[in-house]
């Protein structure tokens, strides 16, 4: 598989604190859906800001499709390749009208207004906000704002979509909608990187995940392996997915499920 994003020996420390990232190494391959899981303050958001070149490594480097984020000449290209959706949509929404908001990135890119209009409609359709073009962003629900912030990144057609805590403050319906949107995007070839500590969401979506704590990568592996390592998760103030917790308490199942669907299959087999 072709690596699309590589982080090598990344070191970054915020001034006057002991917080930062320390010797982080990771590789994301094209078409993957990768999770970065960690408790609050682990360094997840700091790491994501490096993918887009918003923060620069103090040592080590980040390569996006082979382009080093330390090279200022690459930044414009890197920002087109890596779409970053921030945790709080209120920090990302810059315009009063939905279509103006979605068009913001494209207007910076110099496309014609006609092309922009087509792309804006497509992006809004993808996230389920068709016909919202003229709505006032202030009137949208939190879930709708979250979708809007994804649309405003998708419209720029980045190869890599990076989302910071996308399920925070969302109701269960909102999480389900978001899961479906991200899954569809991944099926259509987008590489997805998500920082989260929502383990049920992580289990449903990720192929692979990294556990990060205190600015260091603790482990990496398939979700079935990492999310069932209960002692490791607890050591880093994390919990396994709900179904995994339930099956931990049930004897005789052997392999622990991480997704609801797997748990249902296991139970069906046992009942038969």
């Amino acid at each position: 598989m072709e690596p699309i994003l590589e982080v090598k020996n990344l070191f970054f420390k915020y001034p006057k604190t002991d917080k930062g990232l320390f010797n982080v190494n990771m590789t994301v391959y094209r078409g993957e859906c990768v999770g970065i899981i960690g408790p609050n303050g682990a360094g997840k958001s700091t790491l994501l800001l490096h993918f887009n070149g918003l923060l620069k490594p103090q040592s080590g480097f980040v390569l996006v499709k082979g382009l080093n984020t330390l090279n200022e000449k690459n930044i414009s290209r890197i920002r087109r390749e890596v779409g970053l959706v921030f945790q709080d949509p209120n920090d990302q929404i810059l315009k009063n009208i939905v279509e103006e908001e979605v068009a913001y990135g494209l207007l910076n890119s110099g496309l014609s207004l006609d092309e922009i209009s087509v792309k804006v409609n497509d992006a809004l359709k993808t996230v389920g906000l068709k016909d919202y073009n003229k709505r006032v962003t202030f009137h949208l629900s939190y879930g709708e704002k979250k979708k809007l912030s994804i649309a405003s990144i998708l419209v720029m057609n980045p190869d890599i979509l990076v989302l910071d805590e996308p399920t925070s403050n969302l109701d269960p319906g909102g999480v389900e909608d978001l899961t479906n949107i991200i899954r569809d995007l991944n099926r259509n070839g987008k590489t997805i990187i998500i920082a989260t500590h929502d383990m049920d969401f992580a289990a449903e979506l990720f192929n692979r995940c990294y556990i990060i704590d205190e600015g260091r990568i603790i482990c990496e592996g398939g979700v079935e392996t990492v999310l069932t390592n209960i002692s490791l998760l607890r050591e880093h103030r994390l919990k396994p997915p709900t179904v995994t917790q339930v099956f931990t308490g049930l004897p005789g199942f052997g392999k622990l499920p991480v997704r609801v669907g797997e748990a249902v299959e296991l139970l069906k087999r046992r009942l038969e």
Binding site: S76, R79, S152, M156
Partner: peptide
């Protein structure tokens, strides 16, 4: 940051 991320 959000503006820069979108090519401002």
């Amino acid at each position: 940051n959000a503006m820069l991320a979108r090519g401002f």
